[in-house]
Nucleic acid binder design. Structure first.
Lengths: 253, 253
DNA sequence: AATGAACGTTGCACAGAATGCAACGGATGC
DNA sequence: GCATCCGTTGCATTCTGTGCAACGTTCATT
């Protein structure tokens, strides 16, 4: 809507790919160098862009700090965290918390596995939306037209032979997930990693977040992981209760 | 330099404080509502701002994802990480990696303590710059005029009785740190937490990052923590060597 | 040492884009 | 049913962002 701002913001994802010099930025924006310079300067003043010693630009520190604040302000995260820790203490595996926002699912909290073999993931990283158990739960709860539109829009990368193949298969999977109230990812993202996930619901019953337990095959089999399902669902329900204001943390006050 | 972009970017820190509606944003920017609306729409299109169900705006998911990419692109982080993990395995305490950028010091990596009593901190959070051991190392290496200017500009919050009091005291501490080549924070930020830190240097000998080991008093005393200094310095030197290209990782290739 | 290319930077005239206004519409509350 | 509040839209004005051309550096080449 605003050309100048639009151009300026387009620089950010561009720099996220790696450092770039003025000319490269100007070229990729399709504007004159002097224009790119002024935009970069403005971004720089706000700390979103940093100029490294070789004169090239890269994303700046304030961006990281801002994102940090953004996450810490998510109240679901605040409420869920102690529950995630407790669950991790009980089962020992990696625990994730994820939310959906504008066609993306992303992890907003994580408690690391206590086993030496760990799964790679990072808070803030967008989730493999077509296969992750938490993504299925979050998308399954979308209104039907929106869900269908999104499913059509998505790519379906073949991470493994068990990855979701296409939109129809995905929509079928979502229906199943919505009905049963929980989801799994059995080697759909990485051959040797399985996840079980459960939804966290707000006051009106809408799914506001999802949590999962993940573990590699070498630690527990898929069947063993599934035995944790009741525990995961209980934890998710406890968070739901607290988030929607029905119960207070650990019976406090 | 660019008014429109400047205004748009000013919205981000504003929203970082918490969600706000259109009127609030317009007021705090000192612009007309319609102007604020257009700026917010542009930010929204880029995913930096999200409109929650109550119509208010808050920071968006893409911001978090961008920050994530920004961090993963820092090659010092890439190189240092395995060393941090190894150090953590050896001593069990929390290990931090931090960099300096434009008047701020921030953690860019962290390996959690294996002890139950942990120190609070988060990757991406700006560090208490006047007391943290890593901050001292990074600032001590700045060119003298810049260092002095920054010291004058800073606030000196009294976290504890051992916090750095003012600019002169800070500059003296920095001189000491530069001379000895390592730094500590003994209860300067939180009464019961101590840190030992060592610098990581690039090819030209400049300090490009700093790492620290932190532990609360209840786990180890300050004196015990100090016995880890040689180990911390050796780790930092190993990272320095690899970063500046003098040595290859674990003798590979 | 001298030449030339590549890149970042500056000042300026012009045009186009951003601005504030006023009016509209929908929701909420009295 | 009326009044208020808030977000939204279209439009005329003008201020701001734009591209151009020229300059200054740095670096590589001959």
């Amino acid at each position: 809507m605003s050309q100048t701002v639009d151009r300026a913001l387009s620089i950010l994802p561009l720099l996220a790919e790696g450092p770039a010099d003025l000319g490269q930025v100007a070229d990729r924006l399709g504007v004159h160098k002097s224009t790119a310079l002024r935009l970069l300067r403005t971004l720089h003043e706000h700390g979103l862009v940093y100029r490294q010693s070789d004169q090239r630009y890269r994303l700046g520190a304030r961006l990281i700090a801002l994102a940090q604040e953004a996450m810490e302000n998510l109240d679901i995260r605040e409420i869920a965290h102690p529950h995630l820790v407790k669950l991790n203490e009980q089962c020992g595996h990696t625990v994730h918390l994820a939310v959906y926002e504008e066609d993306e699912v992303l992890y907003i909290d994580k408690v690391e596995s206590r086993y030496p073999v760990r799964m790679y993931s990072r808070i803030g990283k967008p989730v493999a939306i077509t296969v992750a158990a938490v993504a299925k739960l979050l998308l399954a709860d979308l209104p039907e037209p929106e869900r269908r539109a999104l499913a059509d829009k998505l790519d379906y990368p073949v991470y493994t032979t068990r990855s979701t193949a296409d939109a129809p298969a995905f929509l079928r999977e979502l229906d199943k997930v919505r009905e049963q109230g929980w989801a799994t990812d059995l080697g759909g993202h990485e051959e040797s990693i399985n996840c079980v996930a459960a939804p966290i619901r707000g006051a009106e019953g809408r799914v506001v977040a999802a949590m999962s337990v993940s573990a590699p095959n070498v630690v527990v089999t898929a069947d063993e992981l599934l035995t944790l399902l009741p525990l995961v669902r209980r934890t998710a329900d406890a968070i739901s209760g607290e988030y929607s204001g029905r119960t207070s943390p650990k019976g406090t006050v």
